[in-house]
Simulated scan of single mutants.
Amino acid sequence: MLRKRIIFALIYSDGFFMQSRNFRLQKVGDINWLEKNYKFQNIAFSLDELVVLNATRNNKSITYFAKTIENLVNDVFIPIAAGGGIRSMEDAELLFNSGADKIVLNTILHTDPELVRALIKRYGSQSIVASIDYKKSDEIYEVYINDGATKINLDLEDYLHYLEKLEVGEIYLNSIEKDGTGFGYDFDTIKKFESKIKIPLIIAGGAGNESHFMDGLKYKNVSAVATANLFNFIGDGLPKARVKLIESGENLANWNVDN
């Protein structure tokens, strides 16, 4: 059985890392602030992977974002998935060359499926994470692209099956309504859809403590739990969360998180 994972997501915009709540961004600090407060070399044993998302709304630059990935790679020795603004093979190549182990795709999944197929053919499906931002409206599950600004004409279930046919490696399923709340994942939606597809799910949006991780990892097709909550997991929050999950019998890689 494959190990499940804890993922920390970093939201990047215009040179700074952000706290997000319902996709409204609040500036927290630059990469120097991040290193000072999180010391990724020290907490890497608490994590299995980093996801870094470029949420810059205007004049989104892959070049500047790639430099940030390069700087993170110098301090982090766990896999990094990076995305946001990928619109060409060259954009993807730049992120891979900057140290990303995987790329995260969102808008082009809908607007340019041929490019997605080309990326999968070149890099393999295991290197491609499909990001879905969704919210519920009168029992309809709406999917959004362009940093949550544009609703598409497919509901969540249809979109999940569409991505399955594209043969992406994993799906990063993010609830816009739960984003940044710290009140727990959207378990009703996860329960409704996780068994309907074979592609593993990374669930995001709402994690505030280790009990949310534990509840999320109980689902068979959930391969990882993610949080972008910079404040709830600062300090020793992540090491303690991992210890509690391992002690509970969760199928996580077991190493000394105090290293």
Rank of each mutant, 00 (worst) to 15 (best):
S98V: 11
S98I: 08
S98N: 10
S98L: 11
S98K: 07
G99I: 07
G99S: 14
G99E: 12
G99Q: 06
A100M: 11
A100K: 04
A100Q: 08
D101T: 10
D101R: 14
D101Q: 14
D101K: 14
K102A: 01
K102T: 01
I103P: 01
I103M: 10
I103A: 05
V104K: 00
V104M: 07
V104N: 02
V104D: 01
V104I: 15
L105D: 04
L105M: 09
L105R: 07
L105C: 10
N106R: 01
N106S: 09
T107G: 04
T107E: 06
T107Y: 04
T107F: 03
I108F: 10
I108M: 12
I108L: 09
L109T: 02
L109I: 09
L109F: 06
L109A: 06
L109K: 02
L109M: 08
H110M: 12
H110R: 13
H110Q: 11
H110L: 09
H110P: 05
H110D: 12
T111S: 15
T111F: 12
T111K: 15
T111Q: 15
D112F: 05
D112I: 06
D112Q: 13
D112P: 04
P113F: 10
P113L: 10
P113A: 11
P113V: 13
P113W: 09
P113R: 11
E114S: 13
E114I: 08
E114D: 13
E114V: 05
L115H: 05
L115P: 02
L115E: 03
L115Q: 04
L115K: 09
L115N: 07
L115T: 08
V116E: 04
V116Y: 03
V116S: 09
V116I: 12
R117T: 13
R117S: 15
R117E: 15
R117W: 08
R117Y: 13
R117L: 15
R117I: 13
A118F: 07
A118N: 14
A118I: 08
L119E: 03
L119I: 11
L119C: 07
L119H: 09
I120S: 08
I120N: 07
I120T: 03
I120R: 03
I120E: 10
I120M: 09
K121G: 10
K121M: 12
K121C: 11
R122G: 14
R122E: 15
R122K: 15
R122W: 11
Y123N: 06
Y123L: 02
Y123Q: 08
Y123R: 06
Y123E: 05
G124M: 02
G124Y: 01
S125M: 04
S125W: 00
S125G: 00
S125T: 07
S125V: 00
Q126P: 00
Q126C: 01
Q126N: 13
Q126I: 08
Q126L: 09
S127H: 15
S127Q: 14
S127D: 12
I128Q: 02
I128H: 03
I128E: 01
V129T: 05
V129P: 00
V129R: 00
V129W: 01
V129Q: 02
V129H: 00
A130M: 09
A130V: 03
A130E: 04
S131C: 09
S131Y: 00
S131T: 03
S131D: 07
I132K: 00
I132H: 00
I132E: 00
I132R: 00
